[in-house]
Amino acid sequence: MNIIITGVGGQGTVSLGHLIGNIAHNSGLRMIAAETHGMSQRGGSVIFHLKIGDERSPLIAKGQADVIISGEPMEALRVLEFLKPNGVVITNTHTILSPVAVQLGMNYPDILDIYRVIEEWPAKLYTLNTGEIIRRLDIPRGENLVLLGVFMKLGIFQVSADTVEQMIINRWPKFAENNLKALHAGYDVLSEQITN
């Protein structure tokens, strides 16, 4: 399985990638991953490639990703060419326009146009506002764990929920309770979107 994780520098995209990569590793799967970002500053596009299986090259070829997980809608569109037809896109709905784009007088496109292009790819699109969910849960952070929760609940990532939860607890023991809340909120989001 090939997964693209993307977002805007500062959103923790690479950490989420490492977490999912290690989940695969701890579940006994063969994995390989690569991050592509330019310089280490905030605010640029970040793409993380994660391959589970027998391929050796660290980058996913265009048209070969099963899933895109994105922290920002425009970034989901930016990597859409990596997605297989009928693949899955999970994206946070919070939009971010680069300050450089602002300087050049560009506006953020109509978000519905972005969704339409993704759906017409064709792709199955799941959208959620992770920031709002975190605020509703009244916890300080965990937006990426909400995304992870949605991804887990899709049922295409063949790893056990126990492994994932145990890893999250071991990784950040002090924040275990909040982090699990965020993960579970992700599970719920997906259930809601499927029933809708």
Binding site: V8, G9, G38, G43, G44, K62, L97, P99, V100, A101
Partner: peptide, 16 residues
Amino acid sequence: TLTADQKALLKIRPPV
């Protein structure tokens, strides 16, 4: 690939 129209929705995002 995305069409030119679809790509036009993408605004630049260099590191800043």
